[in-house]
Design a protein around this nucleic acid. Structure first.
Lengths: 244, 244
DNA sequence: CCAAAAGTGTTCCGGCTACACCCATGC
DNA sequence: GCATGGGTGTAGCCGGAACACTTTTGG
């Protein structure tokens, strides 16, 4: 690293670093993302990803965990939290050179308002509603969100994170709807069922759910110990995704 | 992003950002990485990944391309260049808070000394020699290197980057040796042959190589237009890698 | 009885594995 | 001839795709 440029050389920039969180969940049959309303310029009043500046002597991941707790009350250590590629275009923030490290967090269906945080304006937004009415986020957060959803889809393929979208116990149908929502395509319920029940350590049966809807009552499961999924789940299509 | 912390709040850090390059190649039947010898403290005299500080108003990826050109004369725009996750432990650099963005570059077998750069001490190091004699790199570059090799292995599975390790034309045996080196395991030459020749857009035949070694002369190929590989190459083992 | 969701059985097919076998060369 | 690497053929297996069929509920 820069063996040739001494520390006396000051052509390099001092800059600030933020972490931003893409917290995804599934509520009311829709993929939703947690956004806050900006209270200050720039982009005042516009929705933005929750996040904040890195503190001195704070590890970057710790900053993400801290912000997650502040905004949602969730314990980031217990949640799948994944670093995405940084965004650092020189003009991405009018306040100066600010590079951001985005983290993807996948959360179960949480109580709506997420109280107890200083970001009282935090709200869940359905992702496809953003697209449809053309709401655009502050900074380059639209790009970050798109990347995050893309990565989430890829992560569903060979990890068991999908269970993190669900509560403690869930049915296979609920799990399938997670996949269908994020991948943006329908799956065969019967083959899906076989596949996930046979995947070692993915699901553990815990009884039967008395049905409230027409149809045969479903078995209940909880997440098993496995983290990686092999063989991976395959999308009907070969690859690529829309994630409308 | 930090709607609650006004810009007047100064609990957040000013820091500096570097890019580091993990430039991998295959030479003399071994996986090698390009390292420079540090001329200044800290870690003076220790091998390190080439890289340097981000300049004002410079995009991060542009910085990586610039450093790549400075160190190797390679045009980074034409090379597969991929951002890895950032490394930013508060104590990773004794000079202060410095966060680094590592990039993975995969290069064909280059002329050894790589002249014309200011990093005249740049040299190729066989990766497993580093492990064996316990040579450790400056900063946390050992960790970055390990991550990069891991990512390279995963990238071989579903992209055509492996051809970037080869020259303009190459035989299937040469290509196979790339996979074997990075994955650290032997592949069946016959099945490998079929698989890659059938993969659409992966290889284009360009004639026959007169053999210098015993054995039937091999067909020559050049890289085809395809970038992604579907279905992916599968490792004999399910997953995981040693990459000794 | 009908619609709807859950779950099982079965058939088909394509890709991967393993290995037998042929080809072309240097020595 | 023989060792060595290149390449083709082929049989078996496994997993996914498709879909018929049974089960169990609410209306």
């Amino acid at each position: 690293m820069a063996s040739k440029t001494g520390t006396s050389d000051r052509t390099h920039v001092q800059l600030r670093l933020t972490v931003d969180l893409v917290i995804l969940t599934v509520r009311d049959g829709a993929l939703q993302v947690l956004l806050v309303e900006r209270g200050n310029a720039p982009f005042r009043g516009r929705p933005a990803l929750p996040g904040g500046f890195l503190r001195p002597d704070e590890d970057i991941r710790d900053a993400a965990v801290r912000e997650l707790a502040e905004e949602t009350g969730l314990n980031g250590d217990a949640l799948p939290l994944r670093q995405l590629r940084v965004f650092g275009r020189p003009d991405r923030d009018p306040r100066g050179r600010i590079v951001t490290v985005p983290y993807l967090a996948i959360a179960p269906n949480l109580p709506p308002p997420i109280a107890g945080s200083d970001a009282t304006t935090a709200k869940w937004w359905p992702v496809d509603a953003l697209d449809k009415d053309g709401t655009s986020l502050a900074f380059d957060h639209d790009d970050i969100l798109r990347l995050a959803i893309d990565e989430a889809g890829r992560e569903l393929e060979d990890t068991t994170v999908a269970t993190a979208f669900c509560g403690d116990t869930f049915t296979i149908g609920e799990l399938r709807r997670i996949y269908e929502l994020i991948w943006g395509q329908a799956l065969d319920p019967r083959n899906f069922n076989r596949k996930v029940t046979k995947a070692d350590g993915f699901l553990e049966p815990v009884g039967t759910r008395p049905s409230r809807e027409p149809g045969r009552p479903a078995m209940l499961y909880r997440a098993g110990p496995a983290k990686r999924l092999y063989p991976p789940m395959l999308r009907p299509n070969g690859s690529e995704e829309g994630a409308s």
